[in-house]
Amino acid sequence: MSVKSLPKEEYWLPGHAACSGCPASLGLRMLGKALGGRFALVVPAGCTTVIQGTFPRTPSRVPILNIAFAASAAAASGLKAAFEVRNLDVPVVVWAGDGGTVDIGLQALSGAAERGEDILYICYDNEAYQNTGIQRSGATPIGAWTTTTPFGKRERRKEAPLIVAAHRVPYVATASVAYPLDFVEKVKKAASKRGFKYIHLHAPCPTGWRFPPSKTIEVGKAAVETGMWVLYEVENGLLKLTGRSTGLWDPAKRKPLEDYLKLQGRFAHLFKPENRWMLEELKKHVDENWSRIRATLERGGRLF
């Protein structure tokens, strides 16, 4: 797929309430193009609630069911069931943040995945509760500053895509707003499959990660090039690296992690001598992640 082959039609209208340089807004724009505007969105509490603005206007040209924080996967299950009984072949897509996915929404997500609901669940991961003022979430990486981890988060993030993959759903993928075409292709692929599909979209947030809004894409690319974020697919239990992450299991091919960290204010404290251990922990986490991926690939990619 090329940039030029992307549909010109916009389903996400300008002049909305997203912050300048917002990755969620870009993701929503690409989602609309990937599915040609014919789908229904379910949106729990989060940045996207606010981005939609206040009644009576919305930037979305696809219908949205707004729902409470923990409820999106269940509400989407119900919406899809209604479409089925009305014989409407309309995809239902959840668009939830990391808090609404890996923390408060995890139970409903797991339930819908286990039931094999025919929905596409997309988590746009800006690695904290950005909407409420940058509080740490279960997806905040170790070491990162947030307003509730003022000296850096001590714990590792949850691997939500792998948790979903453990439900043996037909399709799980990670993506990044810095690679929109890869994301669009994954959305299309997911939409072509029946059953529960999950895409975890890395969404560098200038507001919460403390970088200039012009660098959303640059930060997103650095995350992938340094191996901090990994692009992959899990189809029927088989893991495969995709796009820019292909081959990065070889540490020599990965850029130094500092290239990613130094772009962001939230990691600035890691470069103070007294916090050296936190930087080492973060590097260890990334290396271990890759060792596990490499081991998986060496046995043919079989995860489950």
Binding site: L13, P14, G15, H16, A17, S20, Q52, G53, T54, F55, P56, R57, T58, P59, S60, R61
Partner: peptide
């Protein structure tokens, strides 16, 4: 209930930001 319709400028003329 709050049922909103699509429009450009849902948050106003954001060019002013």
């Amino acid at each position: 209930t709050a049922i909103a319709y699509p429009a450009k400028g849902s948050a106003g003329r954001t060019g002013l930001w």
